[in-house]
């Protein structure tokens, strides 16, 4: 009885807090993150390495936000370099667009997408330590970068060992192929078969992925909140399809995410290339493996209804300069 009341109070408090934030209707470049002392602050991008103008515009927006929200690192959900791995590709598709952030000592942690040569792991600015999959810790959070292109038994055994050994409050895997998504590729059911049991068993809280060229937040699945952030350079406009598991989705512009972790709370914000906030919210971790409290919602200033119910007819496809081979 007492637990039930306590839970309702917690939910009500969190929802009220979220409603206050949402109802303030932030305009472009408004920050929805609390900036708590000693918090873990990071950005999230995926499918960004096009070298085309939208990638640069997203990067510029990330730089603008960095002034208000000084995050110290960025996780990259894969497809870091499209269309080639020549030296100039590293410059045009990574070093140049993110120069301001790199100059500000923001670290980038990459994961491999299906368009990435695994030898990217030797490129120091990607911080992969020469490994296709690796782990690192920031504050009370441990991150696990996985190679979802090739999830062999050796990698699975490594992941289980690392998850088991981790005593961090937050366990956050990030990789390219989403376990839940409703775009042209859809949920990676095969991958889910082997990964989800480990995530559940070892108390993973949040998962980030890309591959689908839009933003999507998934309703908690067995206690885990999944994000798709795969529009850091690419965009597949109108590709979000109706799915029961969708909490919020946005496919009308390129986007990135900002995240802050403070103690048992993770606050997130999804921002478009033009600085529009299309989703924000709070994930409250709860002890004993109980379902987390996740609250959030799109800003009323969003240009399209969220979540989407259907792709708009005649939505323009990505321009040829951005469209990768399948």
């Amino acid at each position: 009885m007492l637990t039930s009341v306590l839970r309702r109070v917690l939910v009500a408090t969190a929802v009220a807090g979220c409603w206050l934030a949402v109802s303030s209707a932030p305009g472009a470049q408004d920050l929805a993150l609390p900036l708590k002392p000693n918090s873990v602050r990071f950005g999230v991008i995926g499918d960004n390495g096009t070298g085309a103008k939208p990638q640069y515009e997203v990067a510029q927006q990330m730089t603008t936000y960095h002034e208000k929200f000084p995050y110290t690192f960025v996780i990259m959900n894969g497809d870091n370099l499209y269309g080639g791995e020549r030296p100039q590709d590293f410059v045009q598709k990574f070093e140049a667009p993110y120069k301001a952030l790199l100059d500000a000592k923001v670290d980038f942690y990459a994961t491999l997408g299906n368009h990435d040569d695994p030898n990217q792991r030797f490129y120091k600015p990607f911080n992969m330590g020469g490994q296709r999959y690796y782990t690192f810790k920031k504050g009370n959070a441990r991150f696990f970068s996985l190679d979802s292109n090739y999830m062999d038994p050796v990698q699975l055994a490594w992941l289980e060992k690392e998850l088991k050994a981790s005593g961090s409050d937050w366990k956050i895997p990030f990789f390219h192929h989403p376990l839940y998504a409703s775009g042209m590729h859809g949920s990676q059911v095969d991958l889910r078969t082997v990964l989800e049991p480990l995530f559940i068993k070892y108390g993973v809280d949040v998962v980030f992925a890309g591959h689908e060229h839009f933003y999507q937040r998934i309703k908690p699945q067995q206690g885990i909140t999944y994000f798709v952030s795969g529009a850091g350079g690419q965009l597949r406009r109108g590709d979000l399809k109706r799915a029961d598991f969708t909490a919020v989705g946005y496919d009308q512009d390129q986007s990135f995410m900002l995240v802050e972790i403070a103690d048992k709370e993770m606050t997130f914000q999804a921002v478009t290339r033009t600085g529009q906030t299309v989703d924000k919210g709070l994930i409250v971790q709860r002890p004993g493996g109980a379902e987390p409290i996740v609250v959030g919602g799109s800003t009323p200033a969003s240009p399209t209804p969220i979540p989407k119910t259907a792709a708009p007819a005649g939505a323009p496809a990505a321009p040829p300069s951005q469209a990768p081979k399948p």
């Binding site: 269309g83 080639g84 791995e85 020549r86 299906n114 368009h115 990435d116 040569d117 695994p118 979802s148 292109n149 090739y150 999830m151 062999d152 038994p153 050796v154 699975l156 192929h177 095969d190 991958l191 078969t193 082997v194 990964l195 990768p324 081979k325 399948p326």
Partner: peptide, 25 residues
């Protein structure tokens, strides 16, 4: 060819294929 992606190899299929050294996939 670097302009072609590396198609994901199904994880559950990898479980039943002979194991390879890490220089091959």
């Amino acid at each position: 060819p670097s302009d072609w992606p590396l198609a994901t190899f199904p994880a559950t299929l990898l479980e039943v294929m002979p194991k390879l050294p890490n220089i091959l996939e």
